[in-house]
Design a protein around this nucleic acid. Sequence first.
DNA 1: CGGATTCATAGATTGAGACTATCGATATCA
DNA 2: TGATATCGATAGTCTCAATCTATGAATCCG
Lengths: 299, 299
Amino acid sequence: MNPHPFTLRQLQYAVAVADALSFRRAAERCHVSQPSLSAQLAQLEGVLGVRLFERDRRRVLPTTAGRDLVDRARRLLVAADEVQAAASGFIDPLSGVLRLGVIPTVSPYLLPDVTPALHRTFKRLNLRWLEDKTHALVAALDEGRVDGALLALEADLGDVEHEVIAIDRFVLVSPPDHELGRGQGPVTAAELREQPVLLLDDGHCFRAQALDVCTKSRAHELEFRATSLTTLVQMVAGGAGLTLLPSLAVAAELKRSKLKVRPVNAPGAQRTIALVWRKKSPLAAPLKQVAAVIRDAWP
Amino acid sequence: MNPHPFTLRQLQYAVAVADALSFRRAAERCHVSQPSLSAQLAQLEGVLGVRLFERDRRRVLPTTAGRDLVDRARRLLVAADEVQAAASGFIDPLSGVLRLGVIPTVSPYLLPDVTPALHRTFKRLNLRWLEDKTHALVAALDEGRVDGALLALEADLGDVEHEVIAIDRFVLVSPPDHELGRGQGPVTAAELREQPVLLLDDGHCFRAQALDVCTKSRAHELEFRATSLTTLVQMVAGGAGLTLLPSLAVAAELKRSKLKVRPVNAPGAQRTIALVWRKKSPLAAPLKQVAAVIRDAWP
DNA sequence: CGGATTCATAGATTGAGACTATCGATATCA
DNA sequence: TGATATCGATAGTCTCAATCTATGAATCCG
């Protein structure tokens, strides 16, 4: 049982330098003077016996060893934060700050209802939402920048636990005079064949899912790619083609619109919205309670 | 980027107290005075806002929060050690201390050959062997007390990576005048039926495997349980019954003995000896090299 | 060239963590 | 019952490690 040769603080400094690629800026971010940070890093390199950063006068570059160490250090610091969080969890799991990620195709339609509901239920809970695409949220989750995230389970999420919120079926949006707009009941895969469909930009998990429906139904994706569901709907209203929407978005996007909406009955035409968190996160229990409230607030 | 509220050292102290269940003994093991350790622990409890240990005058007991924290702290400290090890790995993976576990039914038959071979190949490698039963070695591996272990893959090993060393088939040992001793070629499951067999003590993975062979072949386990393969063989020589041995042990155990040995041709009558290590261990690469040397030295 | 910016070095300051000595409470045993 | 040993907590002191400011040496840019 010997004392540890390095400190958590030294690891924080190393991570900060790797992020900032500059000793001075890293020192600022850590709220210490640049010489203090230099000294600690030198000491860390000393006890490890490896040079972690190549300091050219012009720039700072992590060595192979440095990259590896910073990677490990990140995970270590997340684990250390979790020790802290776990302890707080024993005091009161549902007070303090809870940082949650949410994808753009859910956020604007769900949060207006969910946020007040959560606030009513957990008075002392201070929620911070981060809106981004799935892959960015998964990274943020892994690095401990958020405690959980509202995502579609159909995307690639890595090693997480989850609690399902709702199944969100897809609908077809078409101009009222379009042949598919005039039909009754759910749209079938056969009806979609050869139809021109507008989709979201790359990186949205809803794009991937909608594209999958199109491929399986032999529908055609049009060239144009929208950055939001609102844009998609406006394009359809302008007669540019058809589009798919998650049911969640229908109420907000099609209020006072004359566009026709029909559920889609084709393979893969739905998504499973869930609250996910890191495996073994100490916040699992409170997050499940949060998930229950979100589920109740689902439109 | 705020500085961490606690230190690795404080976590070490907490783990030491949980292990020793005494402040004084924990302090000894950490090579500090008891008041220093008390102070650090009090501070840790302070920043976490939770009492970690109930100090009755008669004994020290971890609270629920304490148990949870110590658990996390253990994993954290293993990860911290691995940062250190990873750094060493960048200097010279095959120098310095390598701590390996090995099970008792392998150790005495393999190490006499393997140790010199490893020493010849990796001159600067300082090997430390820990002999224990599988479950103890798995725990030691998980807690970072050993870097790897020589085990039978048939046992329950948890989340590890491995490199196979050899398949070790089982043989039947019988007195020369026994009916099975007079047979030729491999012993079949049918021949074993109703035969009296001597096995090892509980906890040996070889006991579990040999028992499995007996069950499937309808052989009978005798009451007596030996603590070593040597004892088993002596019992057979004394006419107490038959026994199974791994091939590995045959040369050493049956030198100058008149007992009869026949390979066993029955389901499950073999074990896969492998070198295993923690998933993502930084020592994976050097351990593979070590495994290769052990494989070459296998009799 | 002159000024700005980079990381490293030097020397002073302070505070965290270590030590020894001791207290108060409890368990053990004569 | 009283003596003694043992436990963790407390008090007071000391020391060194981590910080700071000031400055140096090397590079980049106008």
